[in-house]
Amino acid sequence: MATHPGGLTAAARPAVVNPDGKPASGDVTAVSVRDLIRSFGPKGVLNGVDLDIAPGEFVALLGPSGCGKSTLLRALAGLDHDVRGSGVISVPERVSVVFQDSRLLPWDTVLGNVTLGLQEHDAEARARKALAEVGLAGREKSWPHELSGGEQQRVALARSLVREPQLLLADEPFGALDALTRIKMHGLLRDLVAAHRPAVLLVTHDVDEAIALADRIVVLDGGRVATIRTVSPEVGTAADAAGHENLRRELLTDLGVAAVSH
């Protein structure tokens, strides 16, 4: 477990850990966030967030624009060096991040982008396998600009999964894609997560995406966790159509949007 101390706390309070390495609560957690505070200037963005994610659990983080979703994700990724704040964050050793933009290095090939930072001797073979998994076998030598937006984002998924992450952080990864591509990507992500079993934190503003993918949906509002809703498999796949519609309505109410029937 790596711990990112909050910027304002002089010494990091380590998470309470038993001798066997498991958190004191008894449950094994992949992610544990306690009393997380982050602020840009005088305005607090996160005002005391607590969040646990179990290994292999898929959590979607929903919320209106500016509610602090991305700030929380960036804090978990350790990307907020210059942001003031406090709190205790505990994340696994291997964390991968997928951004809204595919963030491929334009000067490196698809294969070079997937192997970026890998030091194992079999990195290339693993990267080829990961590319095959996302359906891009044979495109290893292409330049990023030769791929479509959806393909670029699939390369980004391959790049994050080739590291066998224990935690996958995804910041609106499909936000820039068209609706049809997005649906395909949902299926792909579901399959990949089922195969690799990382804990996932998906930041999204799309209620349907959250229901389709997540085990648990956390709604963030005003820099705090407003509600947490569990998604049963029947509801997630819409086998239980009434339950699906019900959850959708509840989430929209949580988000302060007047529910519209589908």
């Binding site: 350790g78 990307l79 964390v95 951004f99 963030r103 290095l105 490196d108 970026l116 930072g117 790049r159």
Partner: peptide, 24 residues
């Protein structure tokens, strides 16, 4: 954004210079 990416994939300083800074 590429600097952030280099951080998330755990590039060393040398690898960061070789893979991101020089080609960029």
């Amino acid at each position: 954004r590429y600097v952030e990416l280099a951080q998330t994939v755990g590039l060393s300083r040398a690898a960061f210079i070789r893979k991101v800074v020089l080609p960029g």
